[in-house]
Design a protein around this nucleic acid. Sequence first.
DNA 1: ACGCGGGGC
Length: 692
Amino acid sequence: MANLPIVQFEKKIIETVEQNPVVVIIGETGSGKSTQLSQMLHRKGYTDSGIVAVTQPRRVAAVSVSRRVAQELGVRLGEEVGYAIRFEDRTSERTQIKYLTDGVLLRESLSNPELNQYSVIILDEAHERSLNTDILLGLMKRLVGSRASNLKVLITSATLDGEKVSKFFSDCPLLTVPGKLFPVEIFYSKERPTSYVESSLKTALDIHVREPEGDVLIFMTGQDDIEKLVLKLEDKVRSLEEGSCMDAIILPLHGSLPPEMQVRVFSPPPPNCRRFIVATNIAETSLTVDGVVYVIDSGYVKQRQYNPATGMYSLDVVQVSKVQANQRAGRAGRTRPGKCYRLYPSRVYNDEFLDVTVPEIQRSSLAGTVLYLKSLDLPDIDILKFDFLDPPSTESLEDALKQLYLIDAIDENGSITSVGRTMAELPLEPSLSRTLIEANEYGCLSQALTVAAMLSAETNLLPNRSKSNEKKRKHPPLDLPDGSGFGDHIQLLQIFECWDENDYDIGWCKYYDLQVRGMLFVKEVRKQLSQIMQKIAKGSSDVQANQSRKGHQNYRNLRKALCIGYASQLAERMRHHNGYRTLGFKSQLVQPDDDGLYGSYVVYHELISTSRPYMRNVCAVERQWVMPILDKLEKLNVSKLSGGGLGQVEEGTEGSMSELPKREAEVVTVPQERESKIQAARERFLARKAKN
DNA sequence: ACGCGGGGC
């Protein structure tokens, strides 16, 4: 701790904090800012009047940094020093320094907008510009001006971003603390390669043949390219003459890799062996690989973007920002001087790269964010003029208001409804929280909880359908329930119910190629959502997972609840085309993800535009449920929605939680196919289990 | 014949 650069700046930092409500700290990698700032403020007595909070964009960081600080202070984790992340609060009444994810702080702010328990709030890693950090920046700006008791706010950022943050906070002081990185020599390509897979391959082999030992970290954009490069590297390395250079191990590293494959990068290589780690941007911030001396940077990254005009997401390969490029280079200098090979000319870096990554708030659908801000009841707030560091477009905010109106979270004047308030308490996208509330009215809450939980983890459930996995697959996907013709939401429900019947057996997940980690996450989310719903609904709700299993059914109530919740994500079958057209946005021709046909209307979880536009996760809904939504769409007046919102709170009339659930008679028209399929799957599983 | 960067409540 004593040799951390930031320690020499303690006096200066404390002086500046004493005299200013907000201070920006430019702390380069290895400066010790994450562990030391909180301790300095503690020493100065800031923990006497409240807790010192430090936010982190990632859960693992909150846990590991708090653990280190507890160790340095010689206290038990969870006592004077603790952390709070989703599902896990390790703090006590004695806690003085608290590390938490910025999502958790936003939740806390919902029940205590003044955040009175805190004397200091440190927003760490603000340069990453996560959606949650950006919302917090806006809230902090309001809070330092308004709160009765003194609040100190510290924001840590990167060199290229600090000035802007300081300007945002009325030109607050900006301190720079050097890092503890070894120098990294940067090499630029003369021109952009036509194929950066080939160019990476060539560069990697050059390093292997010419440079002394040290691992190589290669930044690629996605799994596909990683797999290609890994194969090529293995091939080339094998063909090198034996004894001409050291051995090599080649490791892929990306998010959809199972955990046991990811941790392989943490075990050191055998002697006289060089590791090549071929990674996505997961290795930029989330995972730190020791032993890296050489970095190869393609200069590209995959980025998700939302188009508010069409309601469509796309995942595009874009150029990294300067901050990202420097972060990548820094990965080579952690243990000794390193080298970074940029597969682009310096002219591209200087002239084409943005200084800072485009903040997530300008790339996402903002329905959840706007609902959150509305539910805070901030005085004099006009959502279109909310003071963001980088404001989202008016179009994007209006899109969010429109979506919220269609699902009854705000009224025609833009004021939050009582339904909207309830929705904001749920850690879900608005469409799903609206579904839960409606499902509770229809007596199918249990099923809706499962669907919402499954969708919260959906991308981490099924293994990726890459070419290599396709061949390895032991069972046809037909083994699992199929949604009984109603689509993905129902299928996800059936899969979870099937797992529930098998007593949440881990082996069952493995047998069906479902990611264990993902399924366990679903179980936890479901539990959390159940607890919140029981609290809100005052005990009148059924939340047992197996509650709904009473013979074959057509999921009518659940689908109706989904239709209400997804009112802004509706599509209509095109008579003379193969596919659907979206309603409520600039109309687009889209396909269900499995090319299935589900009748005249479907709701979808999201629209993705890749080689062609498609709906990810669809659910068949009925015409009679859709008609009221179409009416509402016709009457919609966006300028009225964005004008209102001051003071007046309107009581929602629909879906009020105090009403008794109104149940509909269930009409059973669905074949028994699904039941028999689950039964058959269960028998196969049990037979196999008995054999082993 | 497909699509699937990284986080978080």
